[in-house]
């Protein structure tokens, strides 16, 4: 009985690992140079990104077992994206909260000024320490 529960949980955890790459960028026309950078990383199975004139936010979904190296992956990707977008402030995060916030921005489709405020909000959130 108890063994079957453990097997069930194991099967669940393995099944949850295999999901296809998911990419959403807002506004959608800015995708050209972001896509190839992230696709090179096989530790990431999807990303959602928001871009305006000053900043670029990238929320990435890191594979379960690569999450041990979350900070390293974030740093590496930040450097690479900074190279591609030298004039913009880059924030890369594997945090679920940032992912949810980016998703809500994409759903809302805000105007320019609102977008700026929302991006600032996420930035200050992700800088907070425990």
């Amino acid at each position: 009985m108890k063994k079957s529960i453990i097997f069930f949980l194991l099967a669940l955890s393995l099944g949850a690992c295999s999901s296809a790459q998911e990419q959403v960028i807002f506004p959608s026309d800015d995708s050209t140079s972001l896509n190839p950078i992230i696709q090179k990383h096989d530790t990431i199975h999807g990303y959602k990104s928001v871009i305006n004139e000053e900043a670029i936010l990238v929320a990435i979904s890191i594979n379960r077992f690569d999450r041990f190296n979350k900070t390293k992956i974030e740093k590496k990707l930040t450097k690479q994206i900074e190279k591609a977008f030298p004039e913009k402030e880059v924030l890369v995060s594997g945090d679920q909260k940032v992912m949810w916030e980016v998703e809500s921005i994409i759903e809302q489709k805000p105007k320019k000024e609102d977008l700026k405020k929302l991006i600032e909000k996420i930035k200050s959130l992700s800088k907070e320490e425990t």
Binding site: D95, K97, S126, E128
Partner: peptide, 17 residues
């Protein structure tokens, strides 16, 4: 943790407290 992250401004790093 998910509850605090979803409905309050906490990230994965800060929702532990």
């Amino acid at each position: 943790t998910f509850f605090y992250m979803r409905f309050f401004p906490f990230t994965e790093a800060t929702a532990g407290n």
